[in-house]
Design a protein around this nucleic acid. Structure first.
Lengths: 469, 469, 469
DNA sequence: ATCGTTCTAGAATATTCGGCG
DNA sequence: GCGCCGAATATTCTAGAACGA
């Protein structure tokens, strides 16, 4: 009741202080609570000095319970704030992780896309090459077949017109080649056929002549019985009226066999020098292949590819641009028709942004205050601007457009191919992600020496650099 | 009833004030409401001093209910807490969602990457095959051309050296080939010509011999009968002035024509059995097609593919490593030069990170509470870093551009290409994306039976397993 | 100094209470702080009752400063709230960002996947084409080799049967070819050899006959001088001992030549109509190509492609459907075997939903206030349907599986094709959307007329429309 | 590391004022 | 003008925090 007396006299007996506040603090710390008495029950005087505390375990005669009166641990309250804070931090860290993962995925996606593009390039290249090869193959086949057919045709024509006189063959040949019109690519076959037919024609001519000679000889023989003098008639038949004896035949056979051997030897000798450079060129290729199996794929691939394309494209002849011309006089200027065209292209990138708007509603107050509607009600508007998610397809379309653009290029396929590769590598260099390395095997074989006198395939041109037609 | 007395005497007993308004405020705070009486029912006096409040739980004899009369308010804090809690939980759940999505995307990406790698491998394989094929083709062409050229060269050399009766054949050849234009690379033709010329050489040798024999015989005849000297004039014209008797001629013609027919017949007969196995080979293939329509695609496809690749790659001969040698003495060791080289490559993927910054503004509270600045004002800056979203399309664009470019090429990229385009457009029409369909032309022909005795192409080796060269 | 007096007399004058603690609270609330004096500087008495507070703006004569002494607002709470709110909003906005990015990535991934699938299709097509080409090439090679071999074989047979002075050349040939080792498939060479040998055979026959005739004539001559009768010894030499007269010979030649001429005429006439349509088909194609260089790529390309496909596919010869028949009599009905087959398929994607539940408990209040259960509990349910993001991989996997399946298929390429189709259809059945359409055009073209006398490539047929074999 | 002491702050309620309908 | 409420402040009790024992 007497606050001052208590603080000054009693408190120092048990505590190091004489402050009621400190004592109250300890009471609170141990769970004691102030007893609030109704003022009406007491006098104003009493009210003033009310200083009464209570504890559920602090009862008269309950000494044993006192041991359960324990000091309140600290920091329990910290839980709340720290809890929220903890959760927030957790969330924030998770968010960070998610962001990292997303950016990671983005980067990977980019790499993937780049790789995909490169693969598309590869595919396009390969398709082009395939088409070229197919064309080439087709042309070669046509040539061969036409050759076969041509010889056959010639043979037939011969039979009709020539009968005996061989002048016609010449005109026939001319006729044959000059009149073979339109089929841009039948010449090959015809040439081959002509080849056969030529020999066959000669065979027939020989037969004719032999027959003539035989007739003649028979006539002579008969003319031995009854001599006749019609030798001069057959101008086109090589006169072989000189009799042969067996020895001459033997000699000739001896001649023939060496000839074959000689021919084989010649070919062998000629072949070797050709093959040797071929081998020589192959070895660097192999070395390239070996050294290309390095780890840094990107640049290697790009550079190698460039080189490769350079090789191939520049050296490969565009079959379509070639026309077969029958050159009678001079074979030295076959190369004049070569054309090498190039086209270059680029890429374009663009990006647009987006934004997100949002609001928040707090209508909890209304829930809490029973009868009060004053509490604010904040209807929220959460605008998710999803447009940024749109327009993703455009790029793809653009991509396709580029592709189509490439195809529309009126220039030949080679140029497009090279340009393309260059652009691709360029792109790779710029964007920096090279994931895939393709092996570009670019065999290079020595160029075959053109012989002055020989037949040219109508549509085939040999590329000495790539050793390909 | 007595307002003044109440405020001055009663209120201070229970409160620290003596204001009725404060007391009313407390009444309101605890849910008490003023009882409004109709004015007409009371006197003006009564109206003035009406000071009556009521509460649903404040009833006579309902002391127990009083504990349920609770103070309103102080809810703001609680509101906040629960609100935050709610939001936190929302955020956490969303976070979970995002994590799930990301892991999902990661998995998909990994699969995609795997698929892409496989596709890369495919592409590499195909490119290698293409190169091999191209090389093979080139070598074959070279062989053929060299063959032609070789025979031609031989022929010419012969003609130049022998030049016996050479007028007609020479003029013929010259004329014929001089009209063939100026191909830079005439080797092919020369090779073919060589082949022909070989036979032609024989023909010429035969001719020579025949002429010699004829001359001899004529000499004999003339020496028998009446020696004449005008036979040697027409050196190149086979003299047929020698009469023949009917029998010999008839016999010869009979021999010749049947021979040709016989030959044809032989071929026809030989050909048929070839075709029959062709049919036989096709039928099992069809059965395979039928049975291949199994459900478990993945493993089947993979295994089959592996096997297939195994076939092809191992069986294909590396053309470059082959050199053609004309072996005169021993042909048994042609295979020693075979080399099979393989190169393998892979893909690499990498990813880099990015980040997004953003802030948010919440100024709604300020709008609601008129004059109070307590309400939070959270100026926020929401930065959408869109760059991470940018530049995604470039690669795809490039890629697709290449592809489309390829397709658009007006040049004769071949039917296959066009077919492709057609399919692509069709697909595009359906799905709106470009899906390309290629035309699959897969010719299969029966294997020819190998004859025991035949010439081997210098660079070609046949793989019995794959039925390919 | 006098605590009790102060509280009982002064405080009530200015406050509604008389408690020093309340006053101190207010002092603290307005920023006043207790002045702590060193105990050694004061007496114990002083220490006991030290009750001194200070404020930086509470100075003597500084009345004007007092207005700056402000109550510490209940701002802590607001601060907290806004802080949390801020963080929450940040988190929410970031969440939105992440979601956007994820959906973005999803979209891109889908595009990528689609592109990849298309690329896979491309790859498959190209591979198939490659195989076709390879097969074609192989077959052509086989044909050529067989041709060579065939002629050789024929020659050999001839030689064996005729063997008139041919020993040396034959042995040469034999030696040359017999020692060529074990190439399992020498048909190509044999075919070529056959070609040569055919002529060579004729040459040899001619030689034989010439020799016979010469012998005969010599015999005649000798018989003129000294008749002898040893003609019948050579059984393998066609007997030509029956004399002929000139007329019979002439007649026979007349017969022979018209036959050949007739054949030539037939071929020429037949050839031309073939070539003409070829040209006619080519010209429109070219025009199409030219006009395809328009800007609107997609549709143009598509249409062109359709047209082109029409061309190519219908005109390309299906090798499998062709069997080589040596038709001697009628070549007019080869076209009847044309077949055009197409298959279309697609893929389907679908997504299903799911949900996530979670709750959170907030019992912080209970922790703080020992006996109070005021703490709120706000169970929440947050449903996020994330399952829609699942199952994306299936498509890609299917795609790759198809591809790999295709490649691995040990069976021929046709099976791969079929499997592919099957897989595609299967896929479509499972996933239900039509994504990819394959066009399988298997063109069948008429067979070329085989001429009776002239070697036809056994498996190759020329397509005049596409100008390809 | 716990507890005690002291000062300060939190928390709930109380008082007062002003405003809105 | 009245009833009710929001808001600021006041009062009281309790708790946090720093420092020392």
């Amino acid at each position: 009741m007497n606050e001052e007396a208590f603080s000054n006299e009693i408190l120092p007996k048990y505590f190091k202080h004489n402050k009621i506040s400190s004592f109250v603090r300890q009471l609170n710390m141990y769970g004691f609570r102030k007893v609030i008495v109704q003022q009406n029950e007491r006098t104003i005087e009493e009210t003033k000095v009310s200083l009464e505390f209570q504890h559920p375990l602090f009862k008269k005669g309950g000494a044993c319970l006192l041991e359960n009166i324990k000091r309140k641990g600290s920091t329990i309250k910290v839980d709340d704030a720290s809890l929220y804070s903890d959760e927030l931090h957790k969330i924030l860290s998770e968010m960070h992780e998610l962001k990292k993962m997303q950016s990671n995925m983005d980067a990977r996606y980019e790499k993937m896309k780049q790789n995909y593009s490169e693969l598309c390039l590869e595919m396009t290249n390969l398709r082009k090459k395939y088409c070229e090869q197919q064309q080439l193959f087709t042309q070669v086949l046509r040539c061969v077949l036409e050759l076969m057919n041509g010889s056959h045709t010639v043979l037939k024509k011969r039979k009709r017109s020539l009968s005996f006189i061989p002048e016609i063959p010449d005109s026939e040949w001319d006729h044959q080649y000059l009149h073979i019109p339109d089929e841009k690519k039948k010449e090959a076959m015809e040439i081959l056929k002509d080849g056969y037919e030529t020999v066959e024609d000669k065979y027939k001519i020989l037969l004719d002549k032999v027959l003539e000679i035989l007739k003649e000889s028979q006539n002579i023989i008969s003319s031995v019985d009854q001599p006749s003098g019609n030798d001069g008639k057959d101008a086109n038949v090589p006169a072989s009226d000189i009799p042969m004896n067996e020895d001459s035949l033997t000699i000739q056979l001896d001649l023939t066999i060496p000839f074959l051997q000689e021919k084989i030897t010649e070919e062998s000798l000629e072949q070797e020098p050709k093959d040797t450079p071929l081998e020589l060129e192959l070895s660097p290729k192999d070395s390239i292949l070996v050294e290309d199996q390095s780890d840094t794929l990107c640049d290697n691939v790009i550079n190698r590819d460039k080189i490769h394309m350079h090789h191939t494209d520049k050296s490969l002849v565009e079959p379509n641009s070639l026309s077969w011309k029958t050159v009678n006089d001079d074979f030295d200027h076959f190369n004049e028709n070569l054309n090498l065209m190039k086209n270059e292209e680029g890429c374009l990138l663009e990006a647009s942004g987006g934004k997100v708007k949002h609001q928040k509603t707090n209508n909890l107050q209304s829930k809490i205050y029973k009868s009060e509607i004053e509490c604010m009600e904040n209807p929220q508007l959460l605008l998710l601007d999803g447009t940024s998610l749109c327009d993703f397809e455009e790029n793809l379309e653009d991509c396709n457009d580029l592709l189509l653009d490439d195809l529309k290029n009126p220039s030949n396929v080679f140029t497009a191919l090279n340009d393309h590769d260059y652009a691709a590598s360029n792109n790779a260099t710029i964007q920096g992600n090279i994931a895939n390395t393709f092996e570009n095997i670019i065999p290079q074989l020595p160029m075959e020496e053109a012989s002055e006198e020989f037949n040219v395939f109508p549509f085939l041109f040999f590329n000495p650099t790539t050793d390909m037609f």
